[in-house]
Write a protein that binds this DNA or RNA. Structure first.
Lengths: 163, 163
DNA sequence: CTCTAAATGAGACGTAGTCTCTGGTCAAGG
DNA sequence: CCTTGACCAGAGACTACGTCTCATTTAGAG
């Protein structure tokens, strides 16, 4: 059973209808290799309304089929999700995104819980850095080839940093 | 020397001019007790243009005088900052925000760095839960008094959760 | 006091997302 | 077959948050 059929099955289980528009959005999502924006989807799925794409993405978000990544410029991108809880490691140079879940946020959360008496429900962690290949490129003087992948897409606005 | 004079001194050191508009924005920021939005500032500082408030906030952000908090509904709020690196613990019920910095994200970052070969530059962590008083309120049946503080302000749009 | 670069305010613009409204599709029931 | 009602689509208005532009003002150095 292919990815798309599995997803369609889950949509049906939730009582959602499988319409041609939703199928087109799903196709577009699955065709994306890195992260993407709703705008990217709109360019590939002609004839599907903006609102419909947003509505479909909301459903996929609820079902943990996609997740959202906060890029270092503050822009929110979508990304196919593993479904399990995880975090993102974002390359600030080329925009590549790595998942990680084998981290130790839980002990941190436990400490915080006992220190503050809060009943902790969720957390959001994004880590930013330079991937290995971007480090190598940077060390070659006058290399003009860096930063060509996703970076171009959407860069305006926003600022990261909560200090 | 008062808070505002200290900040003004830092602005001058950076070569920024101290205009009456900036002073009005500063006053408004310092008058805020919890977290706030640019819109909140606009209501208190009449006669200062929107763009100017945004520009001033950007400077204050650069100087670490304020920081940004991602609320659980996805809205970005501003907050007076301690200046040092820290994270936020947000009550999802009343919107109260607690700072914490005594956490151990660093070991996590170190592990991640050696596992992925990324050169890690920054991270963003927000934790969500229920503060003690909201837990108490919730345990009183039919209590109608909960959730009155900041919650009302801006709630439209956005979704949290990277999962 | 004069001069100029920096800053301002108004408003156009951009982007991400929601809401509203009208109309379509489809399954169940009569 | 027809009706009804729930769900869904698409268009486009609208909102929130922020940036850009441009003509005008002003801080502050000389």
């Amino acid at each position: 059973m292919s990815d798309i059929d599995l997803i369609i099955e889950r949509l049906e289980l939730r009582g959602h209808r499988i319409t041609s528009s939703r199928r087109r959005v799903l196709d577009a999502v699955l065709a994306q290799q890195a992260h993407f924006t709703v705008d990217d989807l709109l360019h590939t799925t002609r004839k599907v309304g903006r609102a419909t794409v947003f509505r479909t993405m909301k459903i996929l978000l609820d079902l943990n089929i996609v997740c959202r990544v906060m890029m270092d410029d503050g822009a929110l991108h979508y990304r196919l999700s593993t479904g399990r809880h995880h975090h993102h490691l974002v390359c600030t140079n080329c925009g590549r995104v790595e998942d990680f879940s084998n981290c130790d946020v839980n002990s941190l959360v436990r400490d915080l819980q006992s220190a503050t008496q809060y009943e902790i429900e969720a957390h959001w962690l994004e880590v930013y850095g330079r991937c290995q290949s971007c480090q190598l490129l940077a060390s070659v003087p006058e290399s003009k080839s860096a930063a060509t992948s996703k970076r171009a897409t959407s860069a305006r606005g926003g600022r990261r940093g909560n200090n």
